[in-house]
Design a binder for these strands. Structure first.
Lengths: 182, 182
DNA sequence: AGGTGTTGTGTACGCTCGTACACATGGGTT
DNA sequence: AACCCATGTGTACGAGCGTACACAACACCT
């Protein structure tokens, strides 16, 4: 991957794109807004990313990696003695109660796959990745189900504005997990 | 609600907005595109809906009503002898296997609430409405959980492109329901 | 040392957008 | 009948957009 002058240029643009989506949403994402945020000329953004879809793919992939890293470092998922449902519910709580911008950013990029086929493989990678993180603790079907439930609960909070109820989340996740042992 | 000349004008604009979102997505929604689709002058759309948010609220509310009507007419939800999990799973299957445009349209408007606070009350109405439809068959907590699971499963299919697995959905829904009886 | 092609930049074109605003129209009130 | 104001329309403006493209800069190969 040969890069001549500024080897960080491309990375700077991706970082700027993520900041733009975080602050102005995908609707505010443009080659120009990213160029301004990254403090690079317009031509630089169009050169590295011919379309906004390409830029979004790179941004989504990067947030996915950051997410996986965060979960891995948080730890607690491997220890088989902990209550997985409570673990997950608490972890969602931390995620949602923090800066809403971060959650909005990740979900907005993730949900953008609904209308942008180019993003779907990356969205699939994310879902598989999270399910993979859970796989040491349960079977693949249950892991996938847990991901769906987590998504559903988070979206209910984010879309309707109801406050997050950790005990409720724990209960629902526990029900899904209860059916796994057979 | 006094309307002088064309009492259907406002409704025509909402219908056109829904068609535009269905075909071009929210990104393609503008006062002009709606005006063209509805075959009314530009000034007419800006007059009835000062902002696009207002127009989206009206469109989302209308699709919600259509959705509720569809579910109610489909029936089968009241009969306590049917297997609710299988019922829901089959019903999701019908919804997803049909024209993808319709599903995309409804979810796109629904998910738009993530960044648009004005849409959140309407999104909340929808979630409550669906939960209400389920309430004759189960307790409120479980009903809310079922809505979350349905959302999560549908989004996994729509966002990642994996094919819908009805048996898997039935299984997960059944697990959530199994914890309800106590 | 000099040619060559990737990498990076600046500028301009044509388009669509939200917005504003002056003006037409006609029902409701007096 | 006269007036008023909510309703509806047409046009124009400035801003921001993706795109294109000519040109500059530099690493690499011979």
């Amino acid at each position: 991957m040969p890069r001549r002058h500024d080897p960080e240029r491309r990375q700077r643009i991706i970082d700027a794109a993520i900041r733009v989506v975080g602050s102005k949403g995908i609707a505010g994402l443009s080659h120009r807004s990213v160029a301004a945020e990254a403090d690079v000329p317009l031509g630089s953004t169009t050169y590295h990313f011919r379309t906004l879809d390409e830029l979004m793919v790179a941004a989504l992939r990067q947030t996915n990696e950051g997410f996986a890293k965060m979960v891995a470092s948080c730890g607690g998922l491997e220890d088989p003695r902990t209550d997985l449902a409570a673990e997950l519910a608490g972890w969602i709580g931390e995620w949602l109660s923090g800066d809403r911008t971060g959650v909005e950013l990740e979900y907005e990029l993730y949900l953008a796959a609904l209308r942008r086929p180019a993003l779907r493989p990356v969205a699939a990678e994310w879902a598989e990745g999270v399910a993979g993180l859970l796989s040491p603790r349960t079977d693949p079907v249950t892991a996938r189900a847990l991901v769906a439930v987590v998504d559903g609960i988070c979206l209910q909070v984010l879309l309707t504005g109801v406050p997050y109820d950790e005990e409720y989340a724990r209960e629902v996740l526990a029900r899904v997990l209860a059916g796994a042992a057979r």
